[in-house]
C-alpha cells in the first residue's frame, strides 16, 4: 500500500487534469474540435498569477479571478480570429488541430521571450500543515482540492440552472435546431471557448504555488487531460471527471509500484479502451 502522501499527490494531480479536461470537453462538445493549445492557456494562467502576486502584490484569490478573466478573453480572441476561420466542413478538425498546435509554438515562444526560461515559483500562499497523526498535508494542497470542488459545482450550476447553460446544452445537442430557436451558435462558441480557457487558466494558477512556473509547464497536463477525456469519453463531462481521477491516481499510485512502466500501462490502457469502446467509458458515439 503506497503511503498516504502518494494518494494525496494523486488527488492533487487529478484535480488539475479534471479541471483542464472539463474545459476541453466543453469546447469539444460545442465546437467539435480539440483545442491542442489548452495546456498553454494553463501555462498563461500560472504566469499571470505569478506576476499578479509576486510583482503587483494582489491577494491570491483575486489574482486567480484576474488570470481566469484575462486568459478567458485570450481564448475568445483565439476562437474569433483563428478557429472560426479555419473550421471548414470536411477537414475542419484537422485544420483546427494544426492551427492550435502551431499556437502551442507561438504561445511558448511568446512566454519564453517575456517570462524567461527559468523556473519561477510562488511561495506558499497558505503556509502551515494540517497534521492528521498518520500523515500530514499542507493547507495549500487542501486549498487546491476545495477550489476544484467549488469550480465543478459552479460549472454544474452554470450549465444546469442558468439561461446561458441551457443555450450551451442546446447547441451541443442540436446546433441547427438551436440556431432556429434564436440561439447564436457563433456567440455560444466564443463564450464556451472563453469558459474552457478560463478553466485551464484557473487550474494553472491554483497550481502556481505548488509546482514551479515556466513556459513549458503546459505540455504534460495537456497530454494527460487529452488522455483523460479519451478514457472518459470525448464529449462527456462526467467522463472528463472520472478520466481525470483515473489518470491522476495512475500517475502517482501506480507509478509508485512499477516506476516508468506506469506510463506504458497508461498508453496501453488508452489504446485498449479506444479499440474496445471508441466512445470511451461514458461518451456517446461521435456524430
Amino acid at each position: 500500500m503506497p503511503p498516504a502522501a502518494i494518494w494525496m499527490d494523486g488527488l492533487i494531480q487529478s484535480c488539475i487534469y479534471m479541471t483542464m479536461a472539463f474545459g476541453m470537453v466543453l469546447v469539444f462538445s460545442i465546437l467539435g474540435i480539440l483545442n491542442w493549445a489548452h495546456g498553454q492557456f494553463y501555462m498563461f494562467g500560472g504566469i499571470v498569477v505569478y506576476y499578479a502576486v509576486a510583482a503587483a502584490g494582489i491577494p491570491f484569490p483575486i489574482s486567480l479571478l484576474i488570470s481566469a478573466v484575462a486568459v478567458g478573453v485570450l481564448g475568445m480572441l483565439v476562437e474569433k480570429l483563428i478557429i472560426e476561420r479555419v473550421n471548414v466542413p470536411i477537414y475542419g478538425p484537422l485544420y483546427v488541430g494544426v492551427a492550435t498546435i502551431s499556437l502551442i509554438f507561438f504561445f511558448e515562444g511568446a512566454a519564453s521571450m517575456l517570462f524567461g526560461m527559468q523556473d519561477k515559483g510562488l511561495s506558499m500562499v497558505y503556509p502551515g500543515v494540517l497534521d492528521l497523526g498518520v500523515f500530514s498535508v499542507s493547507y495549500q494542497k487542501i486549498g487546491v482540492v476545495i477550489f476544484t470542488v467549488i469550480v465543478m459545482v459552479a460549472m454544474y450550476i452554470v450549465l444546469n440552472l442558468t439561461k446561458i447553460g441551457l443555450a450551451i446544452r442546446a447547441v451541443s445537442q442540436e446546433p441547427v435546431a438551436a440556431n432556429l430557436y434564436g440561439i447564436s451558435v457563433k456567440r455560444i462558441s466564443v463564450i464556451v471557448m472563453g469558459i474552457g480557457c478560463a478553466m485551464a487558466a484557473m487550474a494553472g494558477s491554483i497550481m502556481a504555488p505548488i509546482y514551479p512556473v515556466n513556459p513549458f509547464m503546459g505540455r504534460i497536463p495537456m497530454i494527460m487531460s487529452l488522455l483523460a477525456i479519451v478514457i472518459g469519453g470525448i464529449g462527456s463531462l462526467t467522463g472528463a471527471i472520472v478520466g481525470g481521477l483515473i489518470l491522476g491516481f495512475l500517475n502517482s499510485v501506480i507509478a509508485y509500484k512499477i516506476s516508468y512502466f506506469s506510463e506504458v500501462v497508461l498508453f496501453i490502457l488508452v489504446i485498449l479502451i479506444l479499440l474496445v469502446r471508441p466512445q470511451g467509458l461514458f461518451g456517446a458515439s461521435l456524430k
Partner: peptide, 18 residues
Amino acid sequence: VYGIHALLFGGAVVLVLV
C-alpha cells in the same frame, strides 16, 4: 533571442492556415 524561433514559426503556420 531565445523563444523568437518558436514564436515566429507558430505565427507563420497560423497565418498560412488562416
